[in-house]
Simulated scan of single mutants.
Amino acid sequence: MDIIADIMLGIGAIGAAIYCMVLSRRLRRFNNLQNGMGGAVAVLSAQVDDMTTSLNSARDAAGQSAAVLTDLTERAEASAQKLELMMASLHDLPDVKQALGPDVPPPDPPTDPAQHQSTDVGNTAPPMFFSHRVMEAAE
């Protein structure tokens, strides 16, 4: 009985050694940097590093853009306040009739350049912003 137990123990030890050799080969192939998962892990690690640097640069650019936009918004608000103040001060100006006096007629309103016809013979230049379209009658 001792001999059978020793034989079984030897067969078990040989089986465990073969199993360890097979696992060692698989692990070596798995960690191979060119073909196995080790290469994939190394590539993914490099990509993660690249993405981290890209994310940090994008975060910095977004922070700078936010600072510029904040500055521009503050300037726009200050300009809007100035314009509101100017518009409010225009309401305080007197009318033209009150400023000129009751006896002086108000100035003529500006005429539309499209309706303006030049009566001056020496002035041959067309008025500014005048359309040069000529309408012809249909035959």
Rank of each mutant, 00 (worst) to 15 (best):
R133C: 13
R26C: 00
A67C: 01
P106R: 13
N31G: 03
D50M: 09
A78H: 15
A42C: 00
M8Q: 13
L100Q: 02
A76R: 12
R29S: 02
Q34H: 07
L72M: 09
P105G: 07
H132V: 07
T111S: 14
T124I: 11
E136S: 05
A99N: 05
A46I: 09
N56P: 00
P94V: 03
S89M: 10
N35C: 01
S118W: 14
V43K: 14
P126Q: 11
K82C: 01
L55V: 04
V41Y: 05
V104P: 08
L69G: 04
A67K: 03
T111Q: 15
T70E: 07
D71N: 12
E136K: 10
R25A: 01
T53H: 02
A99Q: 11
I11F: 14
P110G: 08
P127G: 14
D108K: 10
N56C: 00
D120R: 12
V41M: 03
P107T: 07
Q34M: 05
A62Y: 09
Q98Y: 05
T70P: 00
P109G: 10
S65E: 13
L90H: 04
G63Y: 02
M86K: 06
L85Q: 07
S118Q: 14
A99V: 05
N123Y: 11
A114W: 10
S89I: 05
T52S: 07
M86S: 11
S131Q: 09
D95R: 08
S65L: 12
N31F: 05
M86G: 08
Q117G: 07
M135I: 15
V68D: 10
M135E: 10
